[in-house]
Amino acid sequence: MNGTPSVDSPNDEVLMLAVENGDARKLAVLFDRHHRVLFHFYLRLTGDRDASEDLVQDVFFRMLKYRQTYRPGMDFATWMYRIARNARTDYFRKRSREVALEEGWDAAGDADAAPGRGLEARQEAAMLRRALAKLPEEKREVLVLSRFQNLRYEQIGELLGCDVGAVKVRVYRALRELREIYSQISGRKAS
C-alpha cells in the first residue's frame, strides 16, 4: 500500500536532494516516475484534462522553485502531494471553482469506453464516475488519495493535518457516501 515508487536506486528522496543541491536534471527522473500518477490524481479530482496537464507542469516547476523546502528524511510523496494540493488551490482560485468537473468527467471516462470492456461494466464505471463527481470535494480527495494514489493513511494524515484515526473515519465516511450516491444513480436502494 505504500505509495512511494519501488525503491530503485537512487530513490526519490536521494534524487530530490540532488535537485536541491543544483542538479536540476535529476528532476527529469522524478518526472518519469510521478507525472502519470499526478496527472491521474488531478484528472480524477477535476475531470479536466487540460487543467490536469497544466497542474502537473506546475507541480514540477514548484519542485524546482521550492527545492530548498525539501529536507533530508522527508517523505517525498507527502511533500509532492502537498505541493500538488497547493497548486490546485491556486489554480482554481483563479478559475471559477469546479465548473468543469461534471462536464469534463465524461472525457475522463473515455478509457472505460474501450471496446474490449463489456457494456455493463462500462455503464457501471460511468455511474461510479458520476457518483465520485457528485461527492463533496474533500471526500473525493480522501478517496482518490487512498484508493488511487495508494498513499498510506499516515501519509494522508500528514497531508491533511490530522491523525491516522481521523483519516480512517474520513475514508469510511467518504466511501459510505459514495455508495449511497452510486445506489441512487444506479436506481438501487442503499441498504
Binding site: H35, R36, F39, H40, L43, R44, R49, S52, E53, V56, A107, A108, D110, A111, D112, A114, E124, A125, L128, R129, L132, L143, R147, F148, Y172, L175, R176, L178, R179, Y182
Partner: peptide
C-alpha cells in the same frame, strides 16, 4: 461498502 472500494479500483484513467 467493501465492493464500492473494489469497483473504484477498477476505474481506469486516461493517459497524459
Amino acid at each position: 461498502e467493501a465492493a464500492a472500494w473494489t469497483r473504484l479500483g477498477e476505474l481506469t484513467a486516461e493517459e497524459p
